[in-house]
Amino acid sequence: MEPADWQQVQGIYQEGIDTGNATFEASAPDWEHFDRSRLPGHRHVAASADGTVVGWAAVSPVSARPVYAGVVEHSVYVASSARGLGIGEALLQALIESTENEGIWTIQASVFPENEASLKLHLSTGFTIVGRRQRIARMTHGPLKGQWRDTLLIERRSPGI
C-alpha cells in the first residue's frame, strides 16, 4: 500500500464501516492517522487489471510492550463490487506471509458475529475463534447507534514461530 492508494483504500474502508458490521469506527481516518497506526511492512492492497484498488489489509501492534512484539491486530476490507472473488483470502495470505517473515506469531481481530462472510473467510485461512466478548462496546453511528454489540475474538497462531 502506497500513499497514492489511500483515496481508494479509504473509500473501501468507509464502505465497510457503512455496513454497520465491520467495525465500531464511525468514519475512515485520514492518511496521517492510518499511516501512524499501521505497521508499514504489512499493508497490502489488491487491485483489478486496470489498477483499481479492490481490497486492502493492514496490521497494528496490540501493545508497545516488547513481550507483545509478535502480536498484531489486523483489518481486511474488500470492495462490495469484488466480494466473492477470493480477494480477501489473497490479502490474508499476503498478510500471513509478511508477518511470519518478520517473526510475528499471532494475528488477531475482533469480528461482529453477524459478519458471517468475514468469519467464514478467517476460519478458512487458519484463524480460530478464541472467545466471545459480550456487549464490549456501543455503536456510535448508523442504524445501530446506541446498541451494545458482541464481538468474537479471532486469532491465527503461526505454526512455525
Rank of each mutant, 00 (worst) to 15 (best):
91 L>W: 01
141 H>V: 10
119 L>I: 12
80 S>Q: 14
120 K>C: 08
139 M>V: 05
70 G>I: 03
95 L>N: 00
134 Q>Y: 09
29 P>D: 08
128 T>E: 11
155 E>F: 05
44 H>N: 11
127 F>Q: 02
96 I>L: 06
98 S>N: 04
95 L>Y: 01
71 V>Q: 07
5 D>L: 04
57 A>R: 01
115 N>A: 08
45 V>A: 10
84 G>K: 07
90 A>D: 06
100 E>F: 00
47 A>D: 09
80 S>L: 07
140 T>E: 13
4 A>W: 03
32 E>Q: 15
97 E>I: 05
38 R>E: 04
15 E>G: 12
28 A>Y: 01
50 D>N: 15
153 L>R: 07
136 I>R: 11
82 A>F: 05
19 T>I: 08
52 T>Q: 14
149 R>N: 04
43 R>P: 01
124 S>A: 15
158 S>K: 07
121 L>N: 00
136 I>H: 10
115 N>S: 06
116 E>H: 13
58 A>F: 05
34 F>P: 01
57 A>P: 01
7 Q>L: 13
11 G>P: 04
30 D>Q: 09
54 V>G: 01
40 P>C: 07
135 R>D: 12
86 G>Y: 11
22 A>I: 07
67 V>P: 01
150 D>G: 10
135 R>G: 12
72 V>N: 00
159 P>D: 13
34 F>R: 06
62 V>I: 15
85 L>M: 10
148 W>T: 08
147 Q>D: 13
111 V>S: 02
139 M>Q: 14
128 T>P: 03
76 V>M: 06
66 P>E: 14
127 F>P: 00
60 S>F: 06
4 A>K: 14
101 N>A: 15
